[in-house]
Nucleic acid binder design. Structure first.
Lengths: 127, 127
DNA sequence: ACACTGTTTTGATAAACGTCAAATCAGCGA
DNA sequence: TCGCTGATTTGACGTTTATCAAAACAGTGT
């Protein structure tokens, strides 16, 4: 529809990103398969460094950040940052691409939106 | 100058979570303190058994569930269930009370709503 | 070809985690 | 009081995790 200037807000409000597959955790009991699929996603963000990495990447101008933009914000070493980025990537929360010397990461907003919807107190405020 | 506030914060609708403390992770970089406070909460739900426990409790009729209502749904032993309940409780996600022989657990919706708001790009303007 | 920078992988280590069996605690009823 | 059931704690075990140093990989420029 309208690809107006609407900021990031749109991406989960519509049913498109959330694929409408999952009622909030508080509305309907999660079955085993859902729980085993979701737990690794929450585990991926259950670390302060990864939480900040994800936030830094998602907030970075242009929607993507080079590794060199990130390492300076942490006390841990480069390999550790690289490890955490890999964890986030394997969970599907971020993705990356090499461009010349640098590797750029960006967030996958759909996954984040899905997690939010699962935790959310109500799903759609329609009516 | 800095009184311009994003009108995003009051998601929780529960009245209890009126912290108004945290913009979504994708809007503003999490600082170290926020990340270190949030990570243990996500860690608490980053386990399939705990995820289902939380969901079962939150969905249970009356808004609370006895431990004996829960154990049957899992393959793990009673002590393990008890351990996971303790983790959820120490994270503040659930609370409990003993009534006679049985111990009843209920979910704390404010904490869940806060996590949802942190992850969520959307602005569910419920009233 | 070489050196240099940015990033990831490997290997090792200490801490944290999930699970169970056994023991313990908390109420209830005979 | 004693025994019974529901629930938690303790102690142990194997697995996973976060971290680092060192090595390796990927591009760029000389």
């Amino acid at each position: 529809m309208s690809k107006q200037v609407l900021p990031i807000v749109d991406l989960a409000g519509t049913g498109q990103a959330g694929q409408a597959c999952c009622a909030p955790l508080v509305c309907e009991p999660l079955n085993v398969a859902e729980a085993e699929e979701l737990a690794p996603l929450f585990k991926a963000i259950a670390d302060p460094v990864r939480l900040r990495l994800l936030s830094l990447i998602a907030c970075h101008e242009g929607g993507e950040a080079c590794v060199c933009d990130l390492t300076g914000a942490f006390e841990v070493t480069g390999p550790t940052i690289s490890h955490h980025l890999k964890v986030l990537r394997q969970a599907g929360l971020i993705d990356c691409e090499r461009r010349g010397t640098w590797v750029y990461y960006w967030a996958n907003p759909g996954v984040l939106a899905r997690l939010s919807a699962i935790l959310g107190p109500r799903v759609t405020a329609t009516t």
